[in-house]
């Protein structure tokens, strides 16, 4: 059986919600539309941000758009998310985030007080992350065409290491670290949106990661690759890295922390926490002899008490991710396929 067989898209070639799910369909859009149209080098559009030289300075540059519903959820809101998400994408490039732009798309009828709350939340998040919001834009769309409020942010950061961490630097033998427990953001937002009755019990992990990354760099940890497992969750992120880096990644299910409320919600809804979004966690690939030091830094960071070494990169060139399960079996992980839909029973 060929695993690389191109799958023909059967008819129906319009954008579906699943194209935004961070999984296979989104990657196909990038591979078939975005990269052919824009990329001028092999590295373009392969990572969370772009890295380049401007007048001798090494810079990282990234952008992200935020369409979360509801706008406010336990542990954060669309504003803090829009700042932290872009801060984190810069941090994953090994850069200190410096300046952010913000674009608001506002729906006719949106209460001004709500925009005020979101703007205040963005300012607080920016202050906490040590970045400045320096330029922006607002547009208004007709009622019914905008879901209240969308935000785009772009960010620039200064690279802190000579070589920007990237999937191609991942080597067999590398340790894989995870900076905390998973699944909080996706479940918190879903619970707030759907009103399951356990909303409030679970807060989003939405947080800036730049300070922790800077501490890793200051400690002299050789960072081969970092990525924050947002849409598509930890499994999708690891599969992306395994495929881009051309390596096999082997992780242990027992080492991946999932809080009790998140586990309970996932059991109830038939969701797999490995595929649920995070907004304040990252994975780091480091040489195995630096793993202990890196783990100590991660454990010291806010929310990092459950940071762990979850696996390693093995020599096998199978470009896959294997999970050693709780009771002894081993299974392969794949990217999220479409949206993760709750099971019927």
């Amino acid at each position: 059986m060929s695993l690389s067989c191109p799958i023909p898209d059967a008819g129906n070639d319009i954008i579906e919600l699943a194209h935004g799910g961070g999984g296979l369909l989104m990657h196909r859009l990038i591979d078939r539309i975005i990269r052919p149209a824009f990329a001028t080098s092999n590295d373009d559009f392969t990572h969370d941000g772009a890295v380049f030289d401007v007048g001798g300075a090494r810079l990282a540059f990234t952008t992200d758009s935020y369409v979360v519903r509801p706008l406010f959820f336990p542990g954060g809101d669309i504003g803090s998310l829009a700042v932290n998400g872009t801060v984190n994408d810069l941090a994953m490039c090994g850069a200190r985030p410096l300046y952010l732009s913000v674009g608001f798309i506002l729906e006719e009828g949106l209460p001004i007080t709500l925009l005020h709350r979101v703007a205040a939340s963005m300012r607080a998040a920016a202050d906490a992350a040590g970045v400045r919001l320096v330029t922006g834009d607002t547009k208004v769309v007709e009622r019914g065409k905008g879901d209240g409020l969308y935000i785009n942010t772009a960010g620039v950061g200064a690279l802190r290491s000579a070589v920007a961490p990237a999937p191609r630097l991942v080597r067999p033998g590398d340790a894989v670290l995870l900076s905390g427990d998973i699944g909080r953001h996706g479940i918190a937002v879903m619970a707030a949106r759907e009103g399951f009755g356990f909303e409030g019990a679970i807060e989003s992990d939405c947080a800036p990661l730049a300070a922790t990354v800077m501490r890793l760099i200051d400690a002299g940890v050789e960072l081969h690759c970092m990525r924050d497992p947002t849409r598509g969750g930890l499994a999708t992120t690891l599969v992306e890295i395994a495929r881009t880096a051309g390596v096999e990644i082997r992780i242990a299910e027992a080492s991946i922390a999932v809080s009790e409320p998140v586990r309970g919600a996932c059991e109830l809804l038939g969701l797999d926490p490995l595929y649920v979004a995070n907004e304040g966690r990252f994975v780091a690939f480091v040489p195995v002899d630096a793993a202990g030091q890196a783990l100590a830094v991660l454990r010291d960071a806010p929310g990092g008490s459950e940071a762990a070494i979850i696996g390693r990169v093995t020599a096998n060139n199978s470009r896959s991710v294997l999970l050693d399960g709780l009771i002894g079996g081993t299974r392969a992980l794949d990217m999220l396929s479409g949206e993760q839909l709750p099971r019927i029973c």
Binding site: S2, I7, P8, D9, A10, L322, S337
Partner: peptide
Amino acid sequence: TRCTPERPLGATMVSSEGACAAYYRYRRPV
């Protein structure tokens, strides 16, 4: 190949409870 969870030919490839989807998800590269 012609049948995957994104472009399923049949329902067993769609539902997370379907046998084909379970094999696709957990068994394919192994």
